[in-house]
Design a protein around this nucleic acid. Structure first.
Lengths: 220, 220
DNA sequence: CTTGACATTGACCGGTGGGTCAATGATGTT
DNA sequence: AACATCATTGACCCACCGGTCAATGTCAAG
């Protein structure tokens, strides 16, 4: 029964949400206008009316997704940490630990990543999002290098931020591929041990890996 | 004109090679039996005769690909390096620097990675390959931790190998996504600076990032 | 009440892709 | 020479997908 119902962007939003649900189930490859329409309880034609094409829908979904995917922000607990190095590590730790809970989104994100290899618009969106992420890490990295220039001789804040972002992305990859076996704690501990001066920076040898000696904000 | 021609696995091999060429052009999504057949100069039916289904073809292609994708092996030049730390770094460096040249394969690999998220067989193959890779890194990691236990207190060889592999995979991701802007040198320099003791281990401040102070085997 | 804008539908189309299959002919065997 | 084998073909089927479009019902404005 044709006719006005949700004239504004409600429909767009509803369709996008439906598209997300479908994509989470079927991946981007399996995302068809048909399925989305069915999931949203509307007709196939309406999807094309609102998004023009399947491609338009995909791009819109990506932007919709990126808008509401959290960016690395240090919270108060982290800002209270004594050393800038530990502050950076704490942010990394929190984001990496959050990955398993966001698995659906992360998977989808990689779908888009692959798609971006051939799709300029998608690629641009993803790059922008990653740049934002890396930029959010940058001030933390800056503090690290300025706090102890001798230790990080020749290391730039940009480089450090990039590597930190890369580390997190690498972990994301592992989480998607092998969630059971990927040991978040082990990776983080290793990173910590790598970055920390041996012996110096009064850290007690806190025993078993898996429990870190520095406090980390829980994510409720 | 039907009839025997290359009765053995020649045809399989030929079709797989064709499939690889098509996949390199069109990605996994665009890989159709039609295209592969055309590329191989055979009929579509033959593809199904040899591989049963598109899925069978994809799995066969993945295995074919993984078989002939090189695994991190340290060569003589690297084994000659004085410290185990530098040996590990040299291997990482060589593999990361090789990534841009292998871009096609890397892209394809990520296609399979994404596919593996939903495809148990593919997932198993990829996991196995990654395990092999990580295991190849492990002895190097072992040397590192045993050589300087104080510095890497609480750090396990497994963890180090995993993180090293993760770092390389993260770089691969960047290479695929943003080959122009991803600065291989910067990432490697940063990693080096992170891992190296500040001030100690007599490294001259070698000036501009991009030129590393330690020797690296070229890849001819 | 009429009118016009417009979201919405459902039927429809052309293309394509995975998959099947009977027919065919080259090859090795008896 | 006759036969069995089997790789190989090409036509064919069906499902589905992206996309179009005229028709229609609804709403707000005049």
């Amino acid at each position: 029964m044709p006719g006005h119902k949700a004239p504004e962007d409600e429909r767009r939003e509803a369709i996008l949400k439906a598209a997300f649900r479908v994509a989470a189930r079927e991946r981007l490859t399996g995302l068809t206008a048909q399925q989305v329409a069915a999931e949203a309880g509307v007709s196939k034609g309406l999807v094309f009316f609102h998004f023009g094409s399947r491609d338009g829908l995909l791009v819109a979904l990506l932007d919709w997704l990126l808008e509401r995917t959290l960016v690395a922000q240090s919270d108060e607990a982290m800002r209270a940490l004594p050393s800038p190095q530990e502050r950076l590590l704490a942010v990394i730790r929190r984001d990496v630990e959050a990955l398993p809970r966001q698995r659906e989104r992360v998977e989808l994100f990689f779908d888009y990543w692959v798609m971006g290899t051939r799709h300029p618009t998608v690629r641009a969106s993803i790059r922008a999002a990653l740049d934002r992420y890396r930029d959010a890490l940058r001030p933390l990295a800056e503090d690290v290098v300025t706090a102890d220039p001798a230790r990080y001789e020749g290391l730039s804040a940009d480089g450090l931020a990039a590597v930190a972002a890369g580390f997190i992305e690498g972990c994301a990859l592992q989480v998607v591929m092998d969630p059971e076996r990927f040991d978040v704690g082990q990776s983080l501990d290793t990173l910590h041990a790598l970055v920390t001066h041996g012996g110096r920076a009064g850290m007690a040898s806190a025993g078993a890996s898996g429990s870190l000696p520095f406090p980390v904000a829980g994510t409720p």
